[in-house]
Design a protein around this nucleic acid. Structure first.
Length: 125
RNA sequence: CGAGUAAAUCGCCUUAUCGAUUCUAAAUUUAUUUAGGGUAGGAAAGUCCGAACACCAAAGUGCGAUGCAGUGGCUAACGGCCAUCCACCGUGAGGUGAGGAAAAGUGCAACAGAAAGAAUGUACAGGUAAUGCUGUAGUGAAAUCAGGUAAACUCUGUGUGGUGCAAUGUCAUGUAAACUAACGCUUGAGGGCUGCACGCCCGAUGUUAGAGGGUAGACAGCUAAAGUUUACUGGUAACAGUAAACGUAGAUAAAUGAUAAGGACUCUUUGUGAGUACAGAAUUCGGCUUAUAGGUUUACUCUAAAU
RNA sequence: GGCCCCAUAGUUCAAGGGAUAGAACAAAAGUUUCCUAAACUUUAGAUCCAGGUUCGAGUCCUGGUGGGGCUA
């Protein structure tokens, strides 16, 4: 798995997203929350990820966009270290649940922490 | 020099590394790789007007509803823009103005006041044959005059059919031309998303309702456009015409980014400091309105001083 | 994205352009009670914001802010 994060690595299907929110499990590492669900995909990819920021917490489109970009970037740079040899398919959704803005440094740290927690939890099963 | 007025314009830059999206070309493979190019604004915002475009089988008439309002022009169109008259504000450069009609009709005017459109009255003065006949005072935002008020109804002129790209068309997936009820088959059930009426059109493998099944995806629409810049000509101007050059985002849980270094500018408690506005395309244009750190340019006005 | 609607005390609602914006519940203080509740008396509290029209705007007009609904 590489540092790339292209169209097919993004979570797009409305159907899966709906199932994800209804049935998925979550891990919270403030100010992020990860929702995940074990599910197969039609195109045989093992991981699809989406990011989201609530319009209620961030009314301004510029700051909303910025947070989403930071989340995507941090996930992109860290994902090879955690998902390199995973065989089961997961759908992930990362939510930002704080009202404040954030720097890339803090985002990077939080994403690392969150993914480690995710690995621990899923490996135990 | 200082204080202003009007208009125009910019609104962080460079390099490196790692990415996103899209177009073109080539290669293999039929979804990837390689190379090259494009990739946020002046408001992309609010959705307040006007259009293009699409559908409503035709898109028609009347009533209703509603927008606009000195005069003339510009424009595809407009509630926009330009010019100009008038009124008000400012010493001035300039600014602001929903600025048609009260002699068609209906309504409204708290408190005060004799009296608010019905009629008449206090004090003083003047005047008459006589009388609120006249003036002043007094009340009030407004006081007798063809009164005021139309961002009250209304009238006049003029414009508007409705719905909006989640429009609309094609394909894929899935099944069910199934089931129940009502109505109806040319003597017409019902429908055509419109406030109402008329007219018109569709209509039998029919329509409506109930209960239920499937999809929530792809492609087209989608970006070359009433286009931008420069020069010349016409016009006071908005703008129009001609010529040349340019070829200018197209995503869909939604790309246009992240990090590092250097520079620029501003503030400053002078330090290896802090900060760099408002803000993110969603069918596309023309406007309006609102938000906006700071900088630059042009024209003009006023005050003081000097000449 | 598009199309609509609403905004008045802490809450739910009133108010033909005209006095000091009204009512109920809630709140606070007091009376009563050994204390609480109930009851009674009293008090405080609001027109989302900024302009305009008007002699005078909660009401009419314009712009903004916030909240809600519909739409394959």
């Amino acid at each position: 798995m590489s540092y790339r994060f292209s169209k097919k690595d993004k979570l797009k299907s409305k159907k899966i997203i709906e199932r994800l929110f209804n049935e998925g499990q979550s891990i919270t590492v403030f100010p992020l929350r990860l929702i995940y669900l074990k599910t197969p995909f039609d195109d045989n990819s093992t991981l699809k990820t989406g990011v989201s920021v609530s319009k209620r917490l961030h009314k301004n489109a510029v700051s909303r966009n910025r947070i989403k970009r930071l989340m995507r970037e941090a996930f992109r740079l860290n994902k090879p270290n955690y998902f390199n040899n995973s065989s089961t398919a997961y759908a992930l959704m990362i939510l930002y649940i704080s009202k404040d803005t954030i720097t890339f440094e803090a985002m990077d740290k939080t994403v690392k922490k969150m993914l480690q927690k995710f690995l621990d939890k899923t490996a135990n099963k």
